[in-house]
């Protein structure tokens, strides 16, 4: 991206100061605190560490956290795309309000969201009373976790797609259609491939956010061992039993997952930037 890659001598001042402060602040707020978990995990007896993170209940919680996050991210891929498409390309009353409210999940505290969903989907809630009759269970089931995670991740997909959708050159579509492509063909062959990198970035972001989510999930999950117990709750459970090592081990694995997600995200974003240059 920077246009002067070969220019080794910096004319601009402030590299030392800004770089030094960046590294210092990053270390103080992020690296050093996170290192406590890594160091804690390495200080542990390796066997105890492995026994903790591979115990069936912990494994089940990782599986649940990952699978609900994947499922929620896929739902968001669909609904996020839908919302971004509608908000950018169509004109209808209330569009601006909807556009602004996309950010609500980002700004609303997760605990409030959790309490809201638990209340809405309870057997006596606004949604739950109807779902109860149809036999669909949301509360105290993995589907409830997915509902909360869709809420949490939704803004990220919409907000990554919107700018790309806006920048779409109308000529591309027009020329495709003048060459005789149907609307659906244009969408599938031209638009979708073009939007895909941005979509993937948004979905990865919402997935990364969903794996670690705690506040909104515990109220609606039900927290049954092996069934609806998410990985961050395992950390809390271990902490509440004064098992600091156990909590650090579970956290360490979750941290590894997060970090690899970031590397994926970075790769995806570089791909996205390349494809839009």
């Amino acid at each position: 991206m920077p246009p002067y890659k070969s220019n080794k001598r910096h004319i601009l001042p402030g590299f030392g100061l800004s770089m030094g402060y960046t590294v210092f602040y990053l270390s103080a707020i992020v690296i050093v605190p996170l290192a406590t978990i890594v160091i804690g995990a390495f200080k542990m007896d390796p066997q105890a560490f492995i026994a903790t993170v591979t115990s069936p209940r912990v494994l089940a919680s990782y599986r649940l956290s990952l699978s609900t996050a994947v499922f929620a991210a896929l739902c968001n891929a669909f609904f996020g795309f839908l919302a971004a498409w509608t908000l950018v390309r169509y004109r209808f009353p209330g569009r601006r309000v909807l556009d602004a409210l996309v950010d609500l999940p980002f700004a609303l505290p997760t605990a409030v969201a959790g309490i809201c969903f638990a209340t809405l989907y309870s057997p006596v809630g606004w949604m739950g009373q109807y779902l109860e009759k149809t036999g669909i269970q949301i509360i105290n089931a993995p589907s409830g976790i997915v509902v909360a995670l869709i809420f949490i991740g939704f803004p990220f997909v919409v907000r990554t797609l919107q700018p790309v959708l806006v920048e779409l050159e109308p000529e591309i579509e027009e020329s495709a259609q003048s060459l005789g492509a149907t609307r659906w063909q244009t969408f599938r062959r031209i638009l979708l491939p073009h939007l895909f990198p941005a979509l993937l970035t948004g979905v990865t972001l919402s997935f990364a956010r969903a794996i670690g989510e705690y506040g909104s999930v515990i109220f609606i999950a039900g927290n049954l061992p092996f069934k609806t117990e998410i990985a961050p709750l395992m950390i809390m459970t271990k902490l509440d039993q004064f098992d600091y090592d156990g909590a650090s081990s579970v956290a360490f694995v979750l941290l590894l997952i997060s970090f690899s997600m970031l590397l994926v995200l970075n790769a995806v974003q570089r791909w996205q930037q390349k494809s839009y240059r």
Partner: peptide, 8 residues
């Protein structure tokens, strides 16, 4: 920090 669980 964006990807780290708030609990962590």
């Amino acid at each position: 920090p964006f990807a780290v669980s708030p609990v962590i």
